[in-house]
């Protein structure tokens, strides 16, 4: 009898399938499964207790989780919009530079070259209420004589984190928008001037529609980035004080490792991922709409 053999195309695919299964499919499946269990790292046997949607149900009523969720969404919206405006401004300025454009582009990208952890430390120092540069400067300038509690007050701490986030990543927007500006045909701009546009109208009706797809690409990338914001916040405030700056991933990691409630943390993580997917979808829609508007061939 002829021994049965795997057909060659399946045989050739097998290594890739095995590797993918080992590093993606199985962990994903396990984490999803664990979100339906009360799995605690300290009690491995709880992994086999199926409790259905109880974790998710509990999360629905969990004020702490939803405040972290809301803060993440707020961070996403505010930081992304500010970054886009600033990046657009930077790109327009750099595009104007008649000489030294390369140098400027490189300098502009410096913040991206630092590890987020280092950015966190740097801003933690700058916003420190006693020895920080910001208070020092404000006091030297005579603008205040108080030590402003930048990293302690709820709103100020959130603003401080946002500043750090924006400082480190505005360049992403600037680079994409600059690429758009450089790829943009010049003639429609001149046509707009002849057609009677003021510089602002030229920007509004001609330049911006052309740049929009580029801005949306940056938005998509950055939304994934900010939705998983962790390192800068971990260093600057660690979600504190008293959870005042807690975002999704600081909460998730605290739940998973400090509290050892891995099942619950995984449930949170799946909700967080849904959030990311939602944002990505929105921006992708906008992107393809903007692209077809300018009839982009890419």
């Amino acid at each position: 009898m002829k021994p049965w053999r795997l057909p060659p195309h399946l045989l050739l695919l097998l290594p890739a399938v095995l590797i993918l299964a080992a590093i993606v499919v199985i962990p994903l499946g396990l984490s999803l499964w664990s979100s339906f269990t009360p799995f605690r790292l300290t009690r491995p046997d709880t992994m086999y207790d199926f409790i259905g949607l109880r974790n998710y149900a509990r999360l629905l009523g969990d004020a702490q989780f939803w405040s972290a969720f809301g803060r993440t969404v707020l961070l996403l919206t505010v930081a992304l919009n500010l970054e886009m405006v600033l990046g657009l401004g930077l790109a327009l300025l750099i595009e104007r530079a008649s000489r030294g454009q390369r140098i400027l582009r490189t300098i502009m990208m410096f913040p991206m070259m630092f590890s987020p952890v280092l950015v966190g430390f740097q801003f933690k120092f700058m916003f420190n209420d006693n020895v920080g540069l910001v208070n020092n400067a404000l006091q030297s300038l005579g603008l205040t004589d108080r030590a402003i509690p930048w990293l302690i007050d709820q709103n100020l701490a959130f603003i401080s984190i946002m500043v750090a986030e924006i400082w480190s990543s505005t360049a992403v927007f600037a680079i994409f928008i600059l690429a758009g500006l450089m790829a943009m045909p010049r003639d429609p701009l001149e046509a707009a001037r002849v057609d009677g546009c003021t510089p602002w109208q030229t920007f509004r009706y001609v330049t911006w529609p052309f740049l929009m797809p580029f801005a949306f690409i940056a938005m998509t990338i950055r939304s994934l980035d900010v939705a998983r914001a962790y390192d800068i916040i971990k260093i600057m405030t660690d979600g504190g004080p008293a959870r005042r700056t807690e975002v999704l991933w600081t909460l998730i990691s605290r739940t998973a490792y400090s509290d050892a409630r891995m099942g619950m943390a995984n449930a949170m993580a799946y909700i967080a991922i849904l959030l990311s997917i939602a944002f990505t979808l929105i921006f992708f829609r906008q992107l393809s709409k903007a692209r077809s508007q300018i009839a982009a061939e890419w």
Partner: peptide, 16 residues
């Protein structure tokens, strides 16, 4: 825009 002229460009320069 203040000159009241119209121009036809070599590349047409239509707004895409």
């Amino acid at each position: 825009r203040q000159r009241n002229i119209s121009m036809v460009f070599q590349s047409y320069a239509l707004y895409p």
